[in-house]
């Protein structure tokens, strides 16, 4: 069962930005990290998924039900937070939730339940204008959870949070997916964040989906680089080039082979028989971040 399914979803803007032929497949129960540099089209995609923008083409299905301008019923299963939390600063946290509770015609106990989930019970009756950024973010998530959604769509939820806030948010989102069984679709440019909680990732670049699958599949596709620690990096690089391997000198004593053509032990044996001093040789697992930068053609630095 797919929580989100889009087919050829397209939306173009006069500025040249937008998204092109997106085929998203977000499995129900997953934590889906939607990655992309700023301006890649993440927020546009999210606005399309929430019916805030009209697509130029393509279809959207939420839990199998088509979402159109007229058919907004599938949104009943969705809780969302787009960019910053949508809060009324002159009202208390409780009153902010009360606005949405009335709109969704929910029982009053739901407010207490979501306040407990985001741990805001103590501050519920303080005005939102005195809330810290982290508290606002948690209240925004409480708002998204109020309608007891099966799918949570969050756009850059860790924006502006300090490291402690980010850890808190990560734990909260893990709990959503784990204990509450909610599908979490979270966009981010904080790749390390997504890596720690996502079961699935989608990489968007210049409006197109470059990859979609599990982080494991992503690594399998690109492989892990072979890292060789040696006495003379330059000589090893030259030697490997003769062997037909594309090697990069990282520093005077470290050489990296991003996509080795031969098994590691063969490369090792060849280097030793050629008289190179090899101190260590092994695979270095790529972080999602490295893969992301390779896919989007940007420097990690």
């Amino acid at each position: 069962m797919l929580a989100i399914e889009t087919h050829a979803l397209t939306r173009r803007f006069a500025t040249g930005h937008g998204v092109e032929a997106l085929d998203l497949a977000v499995p129900a129960g997953s934590v889906y990290g939607f990655l992309g540099p700023n301006g890649a089209g993440k927020t546009t995609t999210i606005r399309l998924l929430l019916g805030l923008l009209r697509p130029d083409g393509g279809q959207i299905r939420l839990f199998g039900q088509p979402l159109t301008r007229q058919a907004r019923e599938p949104l009943r299963a969705v809780g969302s937070m787009v960019e910053s939390p949508s809060l009324y600063p002159h009202l208390s946290g409780y009153e902010n939730l009360e606005v949405t509770r009335r709109l969704l015609d929910l029982p009053p106990r739901r407010i207490d339940e979501v306040l407990r989930i985001v741990d805001l019970e103590r501050d519920a009756h303080r005005r939102v204008r005195v809330y810290s950024l982290g508290m606002r973010q948690r209240l925004g998530i409480a708002l998204a959870l109020l309608g007891d959604p099966r799918l949570l769509i969050l756009d850059e939820p860790s924006n502006g949070l300090d490291p402690a806030g980010i850890v808190e948010l990560r734990a909260l989102l893990r709990r959503m997916a784990g204990e509450l069984g909610i599908t979490v679709f979270v966009s981010s440019h904080l790749l390390a964040e997504v890596e720690q909680m996502a079961s699935h990732v989608g990489v968007l670049h210049q409006g197109r989906l470059r990859f979609q699958g599990t982080p494991g599949e992503l690594r399998d596709r690109y492989g892990d680089p072979l890292v060789i620690r040696c006495t003379d990096g330059d000589a090893v690089c030259t030697g490997l080039a003769e062997l037909g391997e594309l090697a990069q000198r990282v520093d005077p004593t470290t050489v990296r082979v991003p996509m080795p053509q031969r098994p590691d032990h063969e490369i090792n044996r060849w280097l030793v028989t050629q008289g190179h001093e090899v101190h260590a040789l092994g695979r270095s697992p790529r972080s999602l971040e490295t893969l992301f930068f390779e896919m989007t053609g940007r420097d990690a630095a």
């Binding site: 606005r47 929430l50 019916g51 805030l52 907004r72 019923e73 599938p74 949104l75 009943r76 969705v78 969302s80 937070m81 787009v82 960019e83 910053s84 949508s86 809060l87 009324y88 600063p89 949405t100 709109l103 969704l104 708002l143 309608g147």
Partner: peptide
């Protein structure tokens, strides 16, 4: 301005209400 100021339209209009 209650909606324009804190940008709450995006929350309201993503709810399953006409």
């Amino acid at each position: 301005n209650m909606e324009h100021g804190p940008q709450t339209w995006k929350h309201l209009l993503a709810l399953p209400l006409p």
